[in-house]
């Protein structure tokens, strides 16, 4: 039953989706999602990997690595982007969707990542 309902909901959203491909939409402020279940830092942070590298660990590209950034530095950077303290090309629009708590969880996640290039990682270390 639950699933049937979901499908019909999705079909409705599909109709809207057809028209939205060409539009820049208004921002729904992050606080509107503050009561939702928490998105863990890893889920938030892994959305960054296409530009900043797997677990934030590409060191040889223009976009900076995020792994190992001290928590407070990361928070300051993201808050500056979010509040448009620094004009930026992409990051303002990336950062403004997050709640302060989400930025903190991402900061914890990246601060905990090893500060070394991903390509050096032995992924199977500890495999049985």
């Amino acid at each position: 039953m639950k699933k049937t309902l979901l499908v019909s909901l999705i079909s409705v959203s599909a109709l809207f989706g057809m028209n939205s491909a060409n539009a820049s939409g208004a921002l729904i402020p992050a606080d509107k999602f503050a009561q939702d279940p928490q998105i863990p830092g890893k889920m938030l942070g892994d959305n960054c990997s296409a530009c900043h590298g797997t677990l934030g660990r590409f060191y040889d590209e223009s976009m900076p690595p995020l792994a190992g950034i001290p928590r407070d530095v990361f928070i300051k950077l993201m808050q500056d982007f979010k509040n448009e303290v620094r004009p930026s090309i992409v990051m303002n629009h990336v950062a403004k969707v997050f709640t302060d708590k989400e930025i903190e969880r991402m900061a914890d996640y990246f601060a905990a990542q090893a500060d070394r290039p991903w390509k050096e990682e032995n992924v199977l270390e500890g495999a049985q």
């Binding site: 979901l6 909901l9 999705i10 959203s13 939409g25 729904i28 992409v90 629009h93 990336v94």
Partner: peptide
Amino acid sequence: TITDTFRVQNGKIVKQYGHQ
């Protein structure tokens, strides 16, 4: 560049923001 963000509420995909 395009920056889209989607969240899930009540089993539905919600577009929180889309910027081109």
